[in-house]
């Protein structure tokens, strides 16, 4: 699971109102090269919750993502590289996503977050 996916997910247990952002429990991180694609980065940038992305990056040890950003930075190659790396090259292979409100643990195994709810949570 990459931080892009993390940025889109929340805990959706019935009645939960503050299910986003999920905190990340790391057991194993992996770094894999991905093709650098500035068009995609510019497309996805305005769709992210930046604070959640920044905080998640810090929580898994990626400290070079700026806290404040604006669209002009998308012309800066150095920024795009860091953004690319944090968004697409770092994978949570094993671990979990934890709901900030209920503490419900959504396991991540082989890079796939399991967001399916139990019968009594629907």
């Amino acid at each position: 699971m990459r931080l892009l996916t993390h940025n889109m997910l929340s805990c959706n247990i019935k009645g939960v109102t503050k299910g986003f952002p999920l905190s990340i429990e790391v057991q194993r991180l992996d770094t894999k090269d991905a093709d650098f694609n500035p068009d995609f980065l510019r497309n996805i940038f305005p769709k992210l919750e930046w604070k959640a992305f920044h905080d998640a990056a810090v929580s898994i040890g990626l400290n070079d993502i700026p806290e404040q950003v604006d669209p002009t930075m998308l012309e800066d190659h150095e920024f795009l590289q860091k953004f690319h790396h944090a968004l697409l090259e770092v994978h949570l292979e094993e671990g979990a996503l934890i709901c900030p409100e209920t503490g419900r643990r959504f396991p991540v195994t082989k890079g796939v977050p399991n967001m399916l709810l139990h019968e009594d949570e629907v």
């Binding site: 990459r2 996916t5 889109m8 929340s10 805990c11 959706n12 952002p21 629907v122």
Partner: peptide, 22 residues
């Protein structure tokens, strides 16, 4: 970029996620 185990009937998207897919 992501594979998720999720149920389309009770999707796990953050509440303010809109207009993200092309």
């Amino acid at each position: 970029v992501g594979l998720i185990r999720a149920d389309n009937n009770v999707p796990p998207w953050r509440p303010n996620l809109f207009e993200v897919y092309d």
